[in-house]
C-alpha cells in the first residue's frame, strides 16, 4: 500500500468522502428509526390475541396475512434488487421520478421494518405471561398493558438487535449506489474513477465505514447501560444510619 497516495486522496477528496459518509449515516439513521417504528407496529399487531367477536377477528386475520406477506417478501429478496424495482418501478407505474434520497430512505426503512417486525414479535413472545396477567388483573386494557408494561421491556430487550440492524444498514446502504444515491460507496467509486487508485480510495472508505459502525456500537452500549439504571438502589429513610466511630486524628 502506498501511504502517500492515501494521504493525497484524502486531502484532495475529503469533501466527497465526508458528504458520502454523511449521506450513508443520514439514510441509515432515518431508515433504522423509521424501520424500527414500522417493526414495532407490525410486531405488536401480530401479537394481538385474536378477539372473540367475529368481525374484529376477520379484520385482524386479514391484517396479519398482509403483514406476513410484507415481511416474507422483503426478507426474502435482496435489497439491491428491491432498490431497482422500487426506484424504476415507481417511475413506470406512477410516472414520477422518486427523489433519490426519499427512495433510499424508503427502501432501507421498509427493509428494516420487515426484519424488526420479527424481532419485536420474538420480543413480545418472550415476555412472561405473568406480566400480561398482572397488568390485566389491575384493570389495564390491551393498549395500556402494551404501552406501560410490555413494550418498555420489549424495547429494552430488542435494543441489541436494533443496533445490529443499524450497523447492517450502514454497510448495506452501499448497494443503493446502483440507483445513484451519493452515499459513501458511490462517492468512493467516483474518486477512484478519477485517480485510478482503487485500492487506496476504497481503503479510505473501509476505515470510514468501520469508524461509523464502531461509533454506533459504543453509543448503543452506553444507552443500554443508561436504560438499565443503577446496579444498586438506595433505601429511603432507613432508620439505622451508619455512624462511624469518632476518630481522634480527624483529617478534614
Amino acid at each position: 500500500m502506498n501511504l502517500e497516495w492515501v494521504i493525497t486522496i484524502i486531502s484532495n477528496n475529503w469533501p466527497m468522502f465526508i458528504r458520502g459518509a454523511g449521506m450513508t449515516l443520514l439514510i441509515s439513521i432515518v431508515g433504522t428509526i423509521l424501520g424500527a417504528i414500522i417493526g414495532l407496529l407490525a410486531g405488536v399487531i401480530r401479537t394481538i390475541p385474536l378477539p372473540e367477536r367475529k368481525g374484529k377477528r376477520i379484520i385482524l386475520k386479514v391484517v396479519n396475512i398482509l403483514l406476513s406477506m410484507y415481511i416474507e417478501f422483503f426478507r426474502g429478496t435482496p435489497m439491491i434488487v428491491q432498490a431497482m424495482v422500487i426506484y424504476y418501478g415507481s417511475a413506470l407505474a406512477f410516472g414520477v421520478n422518486m427523489d433519490l434520497l426519499t427512495a433510499a430512505i424508503f427502501i432501507v426503512s421498509i427493509n428494516t421494518g420487515a426484519y424488526m417486525a420479527e424481532i419485536v414479535r420474538g420480543g413480545v413472545i418472550s415476555i412472561e405471561k405473568g406480566q400480561f396477567e398482572a397488568a390485566q388483573a389491575i384493570g389495564m386494557n390491551h393498549i395500556q398493558t402494551m404501552w406501560n408494561v410490555i413494550l418498555p421491556q420489549v424495547i429494552r430487550n430488542i435494543l441489541p438487535a436494533t443496533g445490529n440492524q443499524f450497523i447492517i444498514n450502514i454497510k448495506d446502504t452501499s448497494v443503493l449506489n446502483v440507483i445513484g444515491v451519493t452515499e459513501l460507496y458511490f462517492q468512493t467509486k467516483s474518486v477512484a474513477g478519477n485517480n485510478f487508485r482503487y485500492f487506496e480510495s476504497f481503503f479510505v472508505a473501509c476505515v470510514l465505514y468501520f469508524i461509523m459502525t464502531y461509533a454506533v456500537t459504543l453509543i448503543l452500549r452506553y444507552f443500554e447501560r443508561k436504560l438499565d439504571g443503577p446496579e444498586n438502589y438506595s433505601m429511603i429513610g432507613q432508620p439505622a444510619q451508619i455512624t462511624l466511630p469518632k476518630n481522634n486524628n480527624n483529617r478534614q
Partner: peptide, 16 residues
Amino acid sequence: RKKLGMVFQQFNLFNN
C-alpha cells in the same frame, strides 16, 4: 377487574 386485587404465586411485579 380494577375492583379485584390479585396476588399471584409468581409475584409478577412489572419488571420495568
